[in-house]
Simulated scan of single mutants.
Amino acid sequence: MSTPEESRTRRPTALEIATQWAQLPPEHLRVALEHLELELQREHARETARERHQAGLDADRMRQEQMTERARIAAQERREERAHQLYLGGLVAGFVLAAGMLVGSVIVGLDGRQWLAGLLAGPSLIALPVVFVLRRSDRLGTRGRAAAPPPPERLPADQAG
């Protein structure tokens, strides 16, 4: 049951209206049912409008999510394209550098400066292109030597006693 204050502030339901009309004489029942039908039609129209509005909001939210997803995918593709271009540039630079060093070592070696030709065709021929192509500056052989260096030996003068 509701208090009189609550019943004044809220709209009566269709069932409450029908109950009130049922207390009247039977000839008024037809009028009560007509009013009940009109109230149900209004409630149905309001609910249908609310559902259409909610469906429109849901459709807008879905469109916004799709646009956001497309933008994220486009940004990812641009990042991948830039990374590919950077990798390809490093590959070309490494090849040009290695070829230039080989040609330079042959030219310098024919001039009689074998030590300079050895420097150009030696370890630097492998180290510099690795920096450009693999984008690393660490030596490949250092991974196997990860153990700590042995402690320095103590001099006899450092030993006590």
Score class of each variant (00 low, 15 high):
Gly109Asp: 01
Ala127Asn: 13
Gln159Trp: 07
Ala14Gln: 02
Gly112Gln: 08
Pro25Ile: 05
Thr68His: 01
Leu36Ser: 13
Ala59Tyr: 01
Pro149Gln: 08
Glu69Met: 00
Val131His: 06
Gln85Val: 09
Met67Asn: 01
Phe132Val: 05
Arg143Met: 07
Ala18Gln: 09
Leu29Val: 06
His35Lys: 09
Val131Ala: 12
Ala55Tyr: 02
Leu140Arg: 07
Gly104His: 02
Thr13Val: 05
Thr48Gly: 07
Leu15Met: 12
His35Ala: 09
Glu34Arg: 14
Gly122Leu: 12
Asp158Asn: 07
Val92Gln: 06
Ala93Pro: 00
Leu24Tyr: 03
Ala14Pro: 03
Ala148Gln: 08
Pro123Met: 13
Ser2Met: 09
His53Ser: 12
His28Ile: 06
Arg136Ser: 12
Pro156Ala: 07
Gly90Leu: 06
Ala32Cys: 10
Arg10Met: 03
Val106Arg: 05
Asp111Tyr: 12
Ser124Asn: 00
Asp138Gln: 10
Pro12Asp: 10
Ala45Ile: 11
Trp115Gln: 15
Asp111Gln: 13
His53Tyr: 10
Leu140Tyr: 08
Leu110Met: 15
Leu119Tyr: 07
His35Ser: 02
Ala99Lys: 11
Trp115Asp: 15
Phe132Thr: 08
Pro25His: 14
Val130Gln: 05
Leu102Lys: 14
Arg52Pro: 01
Met62Thr: 08
Gln76Ser: 03
Pro26Thr: 04
Pro26Glu: 11
Arg113Cys: 04
Leu155Cys: 03
Ile126Pro: 00
Gly94Thr: 02
Ala127Phe: 09
Glu80Gln: 15
Val133Asn: 00
Arg113Ser: 12
Leu36Tyr: 13
Trp115His: 15
Thr13Ile: 04
Arg70Ser: 02
Tyr87Glu: 04
Pro152Lys: 05
Leu110Arg: 12
Arg63Ser: 08
Gly94Leu: 02
Val106Asp: 11
Ala148His: 08
Arg113Thr: 14
Ile17Glu: 03
His28Thr: 09
Glu6Lys: 13
Met67Asp: 00
Arg61Cys: 04
Leu128Arg: 10
Glu51Tyr: 06
Thr19Val: 08
Met101Trp: 06
Glu16His: 08
Gly100Val: 04
Gly89Tyr: 06
Arg113His: 11
Tyr87Ser: 07
Ala146Arg: 07
Pro26Asp: 06
Ser124Phe: 07
Gln54Val: 13
Ala146Val: 02
Gly122Val: 13
Glu80Phe: 06
